[in-house]
Design a protein around this nucleic acid. Sequence first.
DNA 1: GTTCTTACA
DNA 2: TGTAAGTA
Length: 126
Amino acid sequence: MREKELRRSMSVFPIGTVMKLTDLTARQIRYYEEQELIHPERSDGNRRMYSLNDIDTLLEIKDYLSDGLNMAGIKRVYEMKVAKEKEAKNKPPLTDEDVRRIFYDELLAQGGLNQQQPYQQKGPRM
DNA sequence: GTTCTTACA
DNA sequence: TGTAAGTA
């Protein structure tokens, strides 16, 4: 069933489509590429072509943003996800999603990566 | 008409 | 981030 992964990685959407699907501006989408969070391919006339995976990542980024994480924090989330994926190949059977969630919560709890608005603890810790 | 790069607010 | 300018 690797066929699906292959298709998800095919870059076929122009930035206009991605904008509608993610509600992000072209500015933001290009900026996130600059931050190496997504890697759209270039096609005819130097136009960026995005894959389903890119759109997925973009939607995740939007979630993180709405929870108060800044670029630095988001980049760290992805860095740690990558680092943990390697480590997880030999250890606990945590899913990709679990790992991301764990570190995401850790980051917010630490509240050490918000240069602008500090993270607010959502509920009381009884 | 859409997207790209560059650059300034 | 938004937006304007000049292109491809």
